[in-house]
Amino acid sequence: MSQSISSRNIKSALAPNPAVGGQNNESSNSLGDFIQETLALTQRLFIQLQRRPSTLIAGIIQPFMWLVLFGALFSKAPAGLFGSDLSYAKFLAPGVIVFTAFSGALNAGLPVMFDREFGFLNRLLVAPLSSRYSIVAASTIYIIALSFIQTAVIIFASAILGAGLPGIVGLSAIALIVFLIVLGVTALSLGLAFALPGHIELLAVIFVTNLPLLFASTALAPLSFMAGWLQVIASLNPLTYAIEPIRYIYGHGDWAINSIVMNTPWIGFSFGSVILVLLGFDALILLAIQPLLRRRFA
């Protein structure tokens, strides 16, 4: 299996350094050891992907099908239906970008769960790691890398289908938003992987939350199209706070940090305030899983 293929690199990364002596030397080398361990564990995940690329391929084909099918479904929609001069291709592309990143991040806990069930995680926990948080960091880096690959493919595919292509600054802002939503959801998924008893329960959580969060966001329709109670739920959905600024970038070439990108039933949010909301979401999730990870790693 992929564990045996990468075992040499992992063992060399996790092996204690006999040359290190004294507490000061250990503390000075702890960061380097952590980076080495994280890179070795991340390499293992990419080796698994190289051997079984179906995960990445499916993660690209599915959103492309969404773009084609939903774009064709609403191809004859009136010109101002989804906003001023906004075609449904431009309206749909941000929703597909965010939902694809969200779905991949929500599955981040599955490799850790399978490592738990197959016993590989136990081997890591008894290895001389400088920090067991390298296990979490490696999974996070892996998922973020996959999300950026999928996002790049979707952006260029949607440009071909008529959504257009934002400028360099706009693409950088999209990358930042995707990073923030993926970071929080990945942390949540990894926390569930350590909290739930097995992969059946984790898959059940993924299936139960995936589509409801999609339809309870503005991925497929604007807030103004929704019933009042659904508008409230969509305004509390973190996916909405990732979709709307990307949609504004697609529709407004002159966007700025103080541009109002979404209007909830309560207040309007500027681009900067939406970024703060996503940062708060990430901080909340990271703080919530800390006690669980400490107990599991103890």
Score class of each variant (00 low, 15 high):
residue 2 S to F: 06
residue 3 Q to P: 02
residue 4 S to A: 13
residue 10 I to T: 13
residue 12 S to Q: 15
residue 13 A to Y: 07
residue 15 A to V: 04
residue 18 P to F: 11
residue 18 P to L: 12
residue 20 V to F: 11
residue 20 V to I: 13
residue 24 N to H: 12
residue 31 L to C: 08
residue 35 I to Y: 11
residue 37 E to R: 05
residue 40 A to P: 02
residue 46 F to M: 06
residue 49 L to K: 03
residue 55 T to E: 03
residue 58 A to C: 09
residue 61 I to P: 09
residue 66 W to A: 01
residue 77 A to N: 04
residue 79 A to S: 10
residue 80 G to F: 02
residue 80 G to S: 12
residue 81 L to W: 08
residue 82 F to E: 02
residue 85 D to V: 03
residue 87 S to K: 15
residue 90 K to M: 12
residue 93 A to G: 05
residue 95 G to N: 03
residue 104 G to M: 07
residue 105 A to H: 00
residue 106 L to C: 01
residue 109 G to V: 04
residue 112 V to I: 08
residue 112 V to Y: 10
residue 118 F to N: 09
residue 119 G to T: 14
residue 121 L to V: 03
residue 124 L to H: 06
residue 129 L to Q: 15
residue 132 R to D: 03
residue 133 Y to L: 12
residue 133 Y to Q: 08
residue 141 I to M: 13
residue 143 I to L: 14
residue 145 A to T: 10
residue 147 S to C: 02
residue 162 G to I: 07
residue 163 A to M: 11
residue 166 P to E: 09
residue 168 I to R: 01
residue 169 V to T: 11
residue 173 A to I: 03
residue 181 I to Y: 01
residue 181 I to L: 02
residue 182 V to S: 00
residue 184 G to I: 03
residue 186 T to H: 03
residue 186 T to M: 03
residue 191 G to I: 05
residue 197 P to Y: 15
residue 199 H to T: 11
residue 208 V to S: 11
residue 211 L to F: 11
residue 214 L to Q: 04
residue 216 A to D: 07
residue 225 F to D: 14
residue 226 M to K: 15
residue 229 W to P: 06
residue 231 Q to I: 04
residue 231 Q to E: 12
residue 233 I to P: 08
residue 237 N to C: 10
residue 237 N to T: 12
residue 238 P to F: 09
residue 242 A to D: 14
residue 243 I to R: 06
residue 245 P to L: 04
residue 249 I to Q: 09
residue 251 G to C: 02
residue 253 G to Q: 14
residue 254 D to A: 09
residue 254 D to I: 13
residue 256 A to F: 04
residue 260 I to M: 14
residue 261 V to Q: 05
residue 262 M to N: 02
residue 264 T to D: 12
residue 266 W to T: 15
residue 272 G to T: 10
residue 273 S to L: 06
residue 274 V to Y: 10
residue 274 V to N: 13
residue 277 V to K: 14
residue 277 V to F: 13
residue 277 V to P: 07
residue 280 G to R: 12
residue 281 F to V: 07
residue 281 F to W: 06
residue 285 I to M: 09
residue 291 P to T: 09
residue 294 R to Y: 06
residue 297 F to Q: 10
